[in-house]
Simulated scan of single mutants.
Amino acid sequence: MGKGDTAKRTQRGATINATSRRFALPQAMADGDWLDMQGLVDGAPPPVKTSVTVENPRTILSRNSSPDVPFDRSINPYRGCEHGCIYCFARPTHAYHDLSPGLDFESRLFAKPNAAELLRAELAKPGYRVAPIALGTNTDPYQPIEGEWRITRAVLDVLAETNHPLAITTKSDRVVRDIDILAPMAAKGLATVCLSVTSLDPKVARTIEPRAPTPERRLAAVAKLAAAGIPTYVSIAPVIPAITDHEIEHLIARIAEAGARHAFFIPVRLPHEVAPLFRAWLDTHFPDRAGKVMAIIRSLRGGRDNDPDFFTRMKGQGPWAELLRVRFHRACRLHGLNLDRPQLDNTRFRPPKGPQGELF
């Protein structure tokens, strides 16, 4: 890693670390820590360090019944995400830990090392019914700490052993490390991968997603996954008006060139504490257009910072939303994307063997 890369890695996404207004949580810092964070002791504030706390949940499958989400179960090996994406809709979940959705979300992380063991026990239950498991729905399963903890890979081992279908969403090229597991699964119709690429501009990407791999590294990962025969999607999510929306056509051209066959987009969403974090980020990094960006977002969201309603929350509404859809679909047709949709196979599943399976 060069000096430039090191500099990039020290950056964070959120510009503030306010507590949650919805939970009225207490301040967690001691007085001395607070002074250090304000830069009143040594001058410039020190870098925010990443910490990882072990979490031992009783279950690992999260279930949802949302009518506009294409899966009903997911696994999140980690809480919080070091990528630091300013727009991340999962940020508010950190408030349940008495932590800030701001800097705490991207620096005070939780890992679930017993995830594979819990999954094995779940899949061994006689009443278990198969449907694709989604990884990466809340926080990224291939964020930097996966390099050491390897919890996602352990989960993949269980899914491969049982021929269980899965769909991965990530913005990290670290996923290519697991091609040895994913390619054989894909050959059986058991795996898809979606890479998120929001901008091709390195400066913009570094500001929006400060600790995620560069756009070029993600596109290179798309090419490697596609070459390995793994059905690969690219998510242009979120599209941020007046910051990244002008890149849609170029992004789709590069996506197709890399070998992906499918793409989708979602206009930026700002639920709960994400809205004030996003506004503070705009004021810091894009003060020249902060008002314009928020005005367009409100036009997309029915006059609000965020639209929580099913169906419209993923698509937006009004002229801006329609223009984005027209541009996106026209570019996809031009480059031959979204001509078909791979279906995951639920029929190959076999319950796990071994001590955990024999308990049921």
Rank of each mutant, 00 (worst) to 15 (best):
G2K: 07
Q11F: 11
G13N: 03
I16V: 13
T19Y: 13
T19W: 11
F23E: 11
L25G: 13
L25F: 09
L35S: 07
P45C: 15
V48R: 15
T53W: 12
N56I: 09
R58P: 06
R58F: 15
I60W: 00
S62D: 14
R63H: 13
R73C: 15
R73D: 04
N76P: 01
P77F: 03
R79P: 01
G84D: 02
I86Q: 02
A95H: 06
G102R: 04
G102A: 05
L103G: 02
D104L: 12
E106P: 00
E106I: 05
S107C: 11
L109P: 02
F110A: 04
E117F: 11
L119W: 02
R120K: 10
V130I: 05
V130P: 01
Q143C: 00
P144S: 11
E146C: 01
E146F: 01
G147D: 11
G147V: 13
E148L: 15
E148T: 10
T152A: 09
R153S: 00
D157N: 14
D157I: 10
L159S: 04
L166S: 10
T170A: 09
V175Q: 01
V175H: 02
V176L: 11
R177M: 09
I181M: 02
A186S: 07
K188W: 09
V193H: 00
V193A: 01
L195Q: 10
T198K: 06
S199R: 05
E209C: 05
P215C: 09
A220W: 08
V222E: 01
L225K: 05
A228Q: 05
G229I: 06
Y233E: 06
S235R: 06
V239P: 00
P241T: 08
E249A: 13
H250S: 15
E257S: 09
A258F: 00
F264W: 14
I266M: 14
L270R: 04
V274Q: 02
W281Y: 00
D283I: 12
P287W: 14
G291P: 05
G291N: 14
K292N: 07
V293R: 04
A295F: 11
I296E: 04
L300F: 10
R301V: 07
F310N: 11
F311M: 11
M314K: 12
K315W: 04
E322P: 02
R327T: 12
R330G: 05
R333V: 13
G336H: 02
L339Q: 15
D340Q: 11
Q343R: 09
D345S: 08
R348D: 04
Q356K: 14
G357N: 06
